[in-house]
């Protein structure tokens, strides 16, 4: 049996999400003029983090069940 793919997906996107959130906090706000004023790193970082954590949760749930 192969390992659960949700694990690396969850890990990778949690990591990407965390990186973007942290960067979004500390980066120079002037560069967000190009993204129409949205701090898109922060916003999308939160979403990616949520997605990643959800995948991790499903992977652990799946492991418990089997």
């Amino acid at each position: 049996m192969n390992f659960d793919l949700r694990l690396p997906i969850g890990l990778m996107f949690s990591l990407f999400g965390a990186i973007l959130v942290i960067y979004g906090f500390f980066s120079d706000k002037a560069q967000y003029a190009r993204s129409l004023g949205y701090n898109i790193n922060l916003d999308w970082g939160i979403f990616l983090l949520g997605f990643g954590v959800l995948m991790l949760f499903l992977a652990f749930k799946g492991r418990k069940e089997s």
Binding site: F16, I19, L20, Y23, G24, S27, Q31, Y32, R34, S35, L36, I40, N41, W44, G45
Partner: peptide, 11 residues
């Protein structure tokens, strides 16, 4: 190049 700031551009 037009819309993505550093960070999201990497993604």
């Amino acid at each position: 190049a037009r819309y993505f700031p550093a960070g999201l551009l990497g993604l």
